[in-house]
Computed example of a mutant assay.
Amino acid sequence: MAGCCHDDHCHSETLPNSRQWRRALWIALAVNTAMFLAEIALGIAAVSASLQADAIDFLGDAANYTISLGVAGMAVSWRAWAALVKGWSLGLLGAAVLLSTAWHAYAGTLPKAETMGVVGVLALLANGGIALMLYRFRASEANMRSVWICSRNDAIGNLAVLAAAAGVFGSGAAWPDLIVATIMATLGVRGGWQIVRQARSELLTTAHDDT
């Protein structure tokens, strides 16, 4: 069947220390670092909660890719611990976004819809490319799956940012930006919980196997 993989070569591509996995992580790390620097500056300039939330996502992902590169090839328990750290960090970043969004709502700031739209398109292209590149690793162990979850959530978030830009432009109000930032934060907390749950399961399995 086309698209199915049954030989040893295909299986080796999805191993935690494979050349394909490391190369994908390096590319994703470079893209996320560049996008964080660009988006945080433009998000502040545009006074957009959703752009700033997306920039924090890029920063969190860059850190996660760095951790994944560091534990590639290590024992399952170490990779599970790394995934656990990433899961909690993703949840905390989501909470930080919620606090930032609440502040923007209190301050009554109005974001610049044009800047949001341009940056949203660039971010979608970046995250969409990364998500496609990491798609084949989505069903692997917790550490590798956590990378896929982050990239998937980011691509969804970028679509939401574009919707927020259209909403701000059409309504002349900040509420679409605030709603999208809240949704993105919720996705972050939910994705973090998914990662933590699988990582804890793998740690329990590893501890049981060692006894």
Score class of each variant (00 low, 15 high):
residue 33 T to M: 02
residue 33 T to P: 02
residue 33 T to H: 00
residue 34 A to D: 12
residue 34 A to W: 06
residue 34 A to K: 06
residue 36 F to W: 07
residue 36 F to S: 03
residue 37 L to F: 03
residue 37 L to W: 06
residue 37 L to D: 10
residue 37 L to Q: 07
residue 38 A to T: 02
residue 38 A to P: 00
residue 38 A to V: 05
residue 39 E to A: 15
residue 40 I to K: 00
residue 40 I to T: 07
residue 41 A to C: 09
residue 41 A to F: 13
residue 42 L to P: 02
residue 42 L to R: 05
residue 42 L to S: 06
residue 42 L to Q: 06
residue 43 G to E: 05
residue 43 G to Q: 02
residue 43 G to I: 02
residue 43 G to Y: 00
residue 45 A to T: 13
residue 45 A to D: 11
residue 45 A to M: 12
residue 45 A to S: 11
residue 45 A to F: 10
residue 46 A to Q: 05
residue 46 A to I: 05
residue 46 A to F: 06
residue 47 V to E: 10
residue 47 V to Q: 14
residue 47 V to I: 00
residue 47 V to S: 10
residue 47 V to P: 01
residue 47 V to L: 02
residue 49 A to C: 10
residue 50 S to T: 07
residue 50 S to D: 00
residue 51 L to E: 11
residue 51 L to G: 14
residue 51 L to F: 09
residue 51 L to Y: 14
residue 52 Q to A: 04
residue 52 Q to E: 10
residue 52 Q to H: 01
residue 53 A to C: 13
residue 53 A to I: 04
residue 53 A to T: 13
residue 53 A to Q: 08
residue 54 D to T: 13
residue 55 A to D: 08
residue 56 I to Q: 15
residue 56 I to S: 14
residue 57 D to P: 03
residue 57 D to Q: 10
residue 57 D to C: 14
residue 58 F to D: 05
residue 58 F to Q: 06
residue 59 L to T: 02
residue 59 L to W: 07
residue 60 G to R: 10
residue 60 G to S: 06
residue 60 G to D: 09
residue 60 G to A: 09
residue 61 D to G: 15
residue 61 D to A: 13
residue 61 D to L: 09
residue 62 A to E: 13
residue 62 A to I: 06
residue 63 A to S: 12
residue 63 A to P: 04
residue 64 N to Q: 08
residue 64 N to D: 05
residue 64 N to M: 07
residue 64 N to W: 01
residue 65 Y to M: 08
residue 65 Y to L: 06
residue 65 Y to W: 10
residue 65 Y to D: 09
residue 65 Y to S: 08
residue 66 T to K: 12
residue 66 T to D: 08
residue 66 T to W: 06
residue 66 T to A: 15
residue 67 I to F: 02
residue 67 I to V: 13
residue 67 I to A: 15
residue 68 S to T: 14
residue 68 S to R: 10
residue 68 S to P: 05
residue 69 L to R: 09
residue 69 L to F: 08
residue 69 L to C: 11
residue 71 V to M: 12
